[in-house]
Design a protein around this nucleic acid. Structure first.
Lengths: 336, 336
DNA sequence: GTGAAAGCGCTAACAG
DNA sequence: CTGTTAGCGCTTTCAC
């Protein structure tokens, strides 16, 4: 390992001088700066980040907490955040918390020990305490893809309420009057639910009485809830599912029940991850601008880390309905 | 930030003593050990890893290089590696290299600066130089999900040759005689190709003359190559695609050409990621034991990092064909 | 058993 | 302009 001492020695200067040229601090003659830089290159010297971190410098490292890296939405989000981070010279610790606050706490203290410059939380946990602690200790925190409404913290998220409203309105315009929803009992889904309800009410429609929450956001639960809904007398003719995985489960349940999507059951999803286009039929879904989200949240982080910008802002992105093949105009039954 | 000095002071001992009880080194009386531990707990003291890293200790940090976090195979692999890592108290820097050796080099030197304890490479790059350098400098390296045949380095991978052989044999048993392959020109795919060729030759079958490599492992290229194959006089009745994404592309191309999968075109994939079950029809595919791969590669890393185990071993896992609905017995044309 | 002191590689006053 | 020096928080001899 080549250290600052090696550079200093072979350049014939002191380590202070080397440090100064490397950090662009103090005043250095052009001649020595050239020489030092040259030696640095020749020796392929890389400053030890641990050592400079000890002196209170940044580590150029950010902790990213997400619920599950194997979930396409979060892996795509992580990928976009990573791209922004990499451009800015930051590395990412990526951690999956499985929506468990226990794991979140563990990861947060683990990463704090490792002197991360800040945290990006997409973690979906409802427990604000840990976040408040971080903010109190002036550790940069940004929230992405979820929202803490009454909480001063940097946030970038899609407008879930509008997303739910869009999805539902679209279905209503298609002629559906009996629209089910599949959601988990987490903040973002509750907002989408509100939007759904709002659209319903504006059209004098109601949430089906048999509504129930899914316990996890996966295909299994999408299928399970849909199967239950389909068993009822007034089974829905359309379903709004709060993410693409749930939507796929809904389609699978429909198939099992002998229903053709979209002719006999319309479904609209949420997220627009890569899988939305590979299922059959491809999903009509509410697209989250994942790439923009990644970029914006990194921008906020950098502002906090490098520019000490400590005022909190909230970036709200607009979701967008993308029409594909999982929805259709309702066909009236002969009996009606 | 509470330091070792704070602990020492309130426990009424020296920092050396605190360090000793925390690291279980030297000899400490049961009484002082108790006291120190108690103070540590009360103050919620967490040793600063940067500082101990400076003294030559491990950072409990590993760099994981993969081609693309948004690719389901790699995000699932990363997730499994992360789980093992987390159990062992390690954090992961996850980096996507896009198969670009330039990015790989950049990430490797960036992470070296950050004193990672080792590297797990799933990166799919063909350039061995950087890996050799790392090994020469005694930096633990393990390769996963790809293979460097003539190179002393810890490796865990599936037997790609056998996988290709299995897929092709299965298709042959179904009666197919005209079997195409979709592959990229990378090591693992070339091995699968070898297996495919072997199975073909054992049955006096040949690789179609119109074979060509895909340039990327995604749906687009799967579709593109399949479209080309389907245009030929002796279009294949079955296709073995070297990953699930390519397979999905093949299915899409078939649909566009008015062919029904599997009745008119059988396809078998590779990987068995989550998406294999959500497409229609669900994929018959060669399953890689992703979870085992993650666990095994972390085991190798830990052996190198914590037990200085420097002899290199290769763990070869067996792939397994899982039958679903994308393949069928061939129907002879009336003309034959 | 315990503590004083040196030093890991680096930055930041402060002198000169 | 450049170098000396004092730490950052920790581990590790080596005395006591």
């Amino acid at each position: 390992m080549v250290t600052i001492y090696d550079v200093a020695k072979t350049a014939g200067v002191s380590i202070a001088t080397v440090s100064k040229v490397l950090n662009n601090t103090g005043r250095i003659s052009e001649k020595t700066r050239k020489k030092v830089l040259c030696v640095v290159k020749n020796l392929d010297y890389q400053p030890n980040i641990m050592a400079s971190a000890l002196m209170g410098k940044k580590t150029k490292t950010i902790g990213l907490l997400i619920p599950d890296l194997a979930n396409p939405f979060f892996s795509e989000l992580a990928r976009n955040i990573e791209d922004s981070a990499q451009e800015l010279g930051y590395s990412l610790f990526i951690c999956s918390t499985d929506y468990l606050s226990e794991k979140e706490h563990k990861y947060i203290s683990l990463l704090r020990q490792k002197n991360v410059d800040g945290f990006i939380l997409a973690s979906g946990f409802e427990d604000l305490q840990k976040v408040e602690d971080l903010i109190k200790e002036d550790i940069p925190v940004s929230i992405v893809a979820r929202d803490f409404p009454m909480f001063p913290v940097n946030t970038v998220a899609v407008d879930d309420f509008i997303g739910g409203y869009q999805a539902t309105s679209y279905l209503i315009n298609l002629g559906h009057e009996n629209i089910g929803i599949i959601a988990r009992d987490v903040w973002s889904n509750r907002e989408r639910f509100r939007g759904y309800k709002q659209a319903l009410e504006e059209n004098n429609l109601k949430v089906p009485s048999y509504f129930e929450y899914a316990e996890e956001s996966n295909i299994i639960w999408g299928k399970r809830i849909t199967n239950k809904y389909l068993k009822h007398d007034h089974a829905p003719t359309a379903i709004f599912a709060c993410n693409d995985l749930l939507t796929i489960g809904a389609i699978q349940a429909a198939k099992e029940n002998g229903l053709i999507v979209p002719e006999q059951l319309s479904v609209v999803g949420f997220d627009d991850t890569a899988i939305a286009t590979i299922v059959d039929p491809p999903l009509t879904t509410i697209a989250q601008p994942i790439q923009v989200m990644g970029r914006e949240v990194m921008k906020l982080m950098i502002d906090m880390i490098e520019n000490q910008k400590m005022d909190k802002i909230r970036v709200t992105l607009m979701p967008e309905l993308v029409e594909r093949k999982s929805t259709a105009k309702i066909k009236r039954e002969v009996t009606s």
